[in-house]
């Protein structure tokens, strides 16, 4: 089998349709074209999404229509960011149950008031009934980090500048978070094609050198150290600027790392897209080693890191 590699990636810009189907069809086509594979060459399909983005039970079910699953396919779904679907697909290839996989994520983040909906991720007995909105909750984390000296408002403004915000004094939305500290909610869809080593066969590839994930207790505490190897480029999934700084510290990333800015919070595809973006850096030859990161849950509760490298 000889390892697992990313061989194709595509993502949608702009508006995602309610079912996701109309957006996913061209995303699949593009990812497969880049991988040089056809739909029927895929052994395993896996997706990530959340019913609460659309407000309907089983919203992932209709997205299957985008695949064209007749005859039937081997397929699975996680109610998480699709980066964890990538982990599931990676395991299927490692275990020898598949040699190719297409992983996708989608979400119409703009369909509801996501800032309010996300309160339902908090403890349902003692926290969610107060409806604390996601930005306020992140602000509490940001202040703890600032008070503990782990970051400053200036550091956060510098991250915002990297993300394309040139106004360091943008208004507070939830002190100490300013407008520029909050990645805007967006619709999103993304697909990544994986292949076992013996199926890569001369294609452009970013090899998965290491992939890990862990969950923390729900709370506002400091992130544990999650040391990452030396990389040239990192694509972090940080909905708020202070979280990008917390992640850089937790991963122990050095000053020489180039960061791919996180500009939009397209929930449930964003984490997968970060891995796709990191893989693109490697496939395009802009990096020998890249880190893609995904987060899930409030306040960086769950984190996945994927280190991708070239093989020359």
């Amino acid at each position: 089998m000889n390892g697992v590699a990313v061989i194709g990636f595509a993502q949608a810009g702009g508006v995602v349709t309610t079912s996701g189907v109309e957006t996913l069809v061209p995303v699949f086509e593009e990812a497969l074209a880049r991988a040089g594979l056809g739909r029927r060459d895929i052994d395993f399909w896996c997706s990530g999404s959340s019913d609460y983005l659309a407000g309907r039970a089983f919203s992932f079910v209709s997205a299957v229509d985008a695949i064209g699953a007749v005859p039937p396919i081997a397929e699975s779904h996680v109610e998480m960011d699709a980066a964890w679907a990538l982990y599931e697909a990676y395991l299927k290839i490692l275990s020898g149950e598949a040699s190719t996989a297409l992983v996708y994520g989608f979400g119409k983040g703009t369909a509801g008031d996501l800032n309010r909906v996300l309160a339902l991720q908090m403890d349902p007995y003692t926290v969610a009934p107060l409806w604390p909105d996601a930005i306020s909750v992140a602000a509490l984390q940001a202040r703890l980090a600032i008070d503990a000296g782990r970051c400053s408002e200036d550091d956060m403004a510098a991250v915002a500048a990297q993300r394309g915000h040139q106004a360091p004094d943008s208004p507070y939305v939830s002190m100490p978070l300013r407008e520029h500290d909050v990645a805007p909610v967006a619709d999103g869809a993304a697909a990544v094609v994986l292949a076992a080593g013996d199926r890569v066969a001369g294609r452009r590839a970013a090899w998965i050198e290491r992939i890990e994930h862990r969950i923390e207790a729900q709370g506002f505490g400091e992130l544990p150290a999650m040391p990452a190897p030396e990389v040239d480029v990192a694509a972090l999934h940080a909905p708020f600027t202070h979280q990008e700084l917390l992640l850089r510290r937790a991963f122990g990333l050095s000053g020489g790392v180039r960061y791919v800015p996180f500009t939009e919070n397209a929930m449930f595809s964003a984490g997968l897209s970060r891995i796709g973006v990191a893989a693109e850096e490697v496939m395009a030859g802009r990096a020998a080693k890249a880190l893609g990161h995904a987060t899930s849950g409030p306040l960086l509760q769950q984190n996945l890191t994927c280190v991708l490298g070239s093989r020359s």
Partner: peptide
């Protein structure tokens, strides 16, 4: 209070319907 923020426009369902602070 070990951390706090301020909300100028309370959302549906929140404890108070006038501006208030969230706090740990």
């Amino acid at each position: 209070v070990i951390s706090w923020t301020w909300t100028g426009r309370p959302l549906e369902g929140q404890p108070l319907d006038w501006p208030f602070g969230w706090a740990l």
